[in-house]
Simulated scan of single mutants.
Amino acid sequence: MHRLILYCIALVWLANGLLCKVLALVPRHEAIVARILGPAHAGVLTRLIGLSEIGMALWVVSQIQRRWCALAQIGLILSMNLLEAWLAPDLLLWGHANAVFAALFCLLIYWHTFTAARLSPR
Rank of each mutant, 00 (worst) to 15 (best):
D90I: 01
F101N: 13
H2P: 01
H29P: 00
Q73K: 02
A117Q: 12
G43I: 04
A70M: 03
W68D: 07
S120T: 13
A116K: 11
V61S: 07
I49T: 15
A117N: 04
I49D: 04
A40I: 10
H96M: 09
I64K: 15
H41C: 06
Y110N: 01
L76P: 00
I54F: 01
L78W: 00
L92I: 05
F101C: 03
P27S: 05
F105L: 15
L71D: 05
G75C: 00
L119P: 01
W68F: 10
L107D: 03
I77H: 01
A31Y: 05
K21C: 09
T113K: 07
A85D: 11
S62R: 14
V22I: 15
N98I: 03
G75H: 00
E30D: 07
F105A: 10
N81R: 05
Q63F: 00
I9A: 09
G43H: 13
L87G: 07
P121V: 11
R66L: 02
L87W: 13
H29G: 01
L14M: 14
L11G: 11
V12L: 13
L82W: 13
N16Q: 09
C106E: 01
G95L: 04
Y110C: 08
W86G: 03
H112M: 03
R118L: 08
L51F: 15
L76H: 02
G55L: 07
Q63P: 01
